[in-house]
Design a protein around this nucleic acid. Sequence first.
RNA 1: GGCUAGGUAGCUCAGCUGGUUAGAGCACGUGACUCAUAAUCACGGGGUCGGGGGUUCGAGUCCCCCCCUCGCCA
Length: 572
Amino acid sequence: MARILITSAIPYINGIKHLGNLVGSQLPADLFARYMRARGHEVLFICATDEHGTPAELAAAKAGKPVDAYCAEMHEVQAEIARGFRLSFDHFGRSSSQRNHRLTQHFAKALDDNGLIREVSEKQVYSIDDGRFLPDRYIEGTCPNCGYTSARGDQCDNCTKQLDPTDLINPRSTISGSTNLEVRETKHLYLMQRSLRDKLEAWIDSKTDWPILTTSIAKKWLNDGDGLQDRGITRDLHWGIPVQKGDQPWPGMEGKVFYVWFDAPIEYIAGTAEWADAKGLDDSAWERWWRTDKGASDVTYYQFMGKDNVPFHTLSFPATILGSGEPWKLVDYLKSFNYLNYDGGQFSTSRGRGVFMDQALSILPSDYWRWWLLSHAPESSDAEFTWENFQASVNKDLADVLGNLVSRVTKFAVSKFGATVPSGGTFGPQEAAVIADLGSRITTYSALMEEMEVRKAAAELRGIWVVGNEYLQSAAPWTVVKTDPDRAQAMVRLALNLIRVYAILSRPFIPDAAAAMMSAMGSDDWTWPEDISAALRTLPVGQAFTVPENLFRKITDEERADWQTRFSGIRV
RNA sequence: GGCUAGGUAGCUCAGCUGGUUAGAGCACGUGACUCAUAAUCACGGGGUCGGGGGUUCGAGUCCCCCCCUCGCCA
């Protein structure tokens, strides 16, 4: 038994995420966690909400709520949706937790003690009416280059020329529209990533088994232009983790907070501490997952995220860990995903284009989405969601291949032999062939799951389902029963056992349907079928089973057309 | 403009270090079966692997140029 730590990139608190966000991190992480648990490993799966920063403050203001209350509320909303998708987090934490405050301040002190923090004085635009410094993208004005009146502080969207906020003519705050702005001098802390560059590069170079997507992004940042840059880790904001050196004040930094990208990944650790707190365990319970001097040396740590998060997880966060000089666990395997596009374009949160997690659950159960998203996960390149493809995949794979298999087996069995596992006959060559076929397929499937080859694993699982239909078709118990009822009973017995085995194998992808299959077979034995021959003889003869409701319903053309128009833009 | 990843059957995608007639699922056609959610199973048609050069006994797979998507960055 191995010890496996899994984290999913933490979703930002501001609003409900769309399916592209889901399939890029939380869902594949859940798949992997469920699989590893099924194999009997000790798994800890942590996620959280990322709560700090300007967007959270603005969203709270828009909602007319204090930012802490807003975050608490949105955290609960996201947690509820996560439960709806059956995301099996051991803990769903919050980056605003006290645990994260203390750890973030601790890391800042450790970095400073090691000479890796420097102070930088810089000029930034301050909005007097808003009472805050404005990040570049919250300033608009007239482009000095082309005269476009809605140029942003970092770039003009019209002429694409790169700008400095102070270049803008008649600059204004996009938050309030106020033009009462001035340039103020402010001091910030920078993490000296440059001095950790070689260490980081050596570490990245040692990860030869990582996806190309992951390492190529990391190397680009290490080598592009002047190479890895030092990074500001503080901001002039109110909502965030106060800048402190451990539990001591940081002279000159009063009133400032850490930058959200500094504290967010630390929440992986803090979230584990929150998990221990929630369980009433002491510090050693979470430290054994993170501190190699306190029992974590045998932990294998996996991270899951979309490609936009890769630089922070391959460079910035490791810089924090390595720079601390303390024995914290570094990620062992980083699985990254490309983007999911929506019907010929992008998912767009701001324009409400695409399907959001709450809407998805309002039209179909989570298993439908889990299956489609995972079997089409954007692993090697960006992938495309279309309603036609979704409909075809759900109807064929789930309803026809798997759902109908369960249906035909149980209904036939009940009508001929009653609602108990029949005792007659013995397994012969046909059954031996099925056992051999499944044995090798399960080996393949397991290997793909361990390699996190999500799409290929889904395809193999589907192949495993098809084996059941192939067997029934060639064995034809409905014909055999007329001349040799005992033989037909043996066939039915195998088929019923098949349903239980399929429940186990399918559970990481479609947990609800798997539970329904298992329960219909009157069993609760989820032991992984290492020995498929024995696994197909597990249900006791005479044990009662039930005919489950159809596991999956089909999506009609009318529904598809309706959804297609409903989710084409403008979220209602 | 720089960079990453892609451009393979109607659609969604596999094809590791170059090697027999380029694969899967869906869709389509034909047949079988009738237990089942008009489900299933078998067989079949369909691709000059974005374009053009080159290296090689041999290239979808390596090199060069060009075109086109997606994304990132400046």
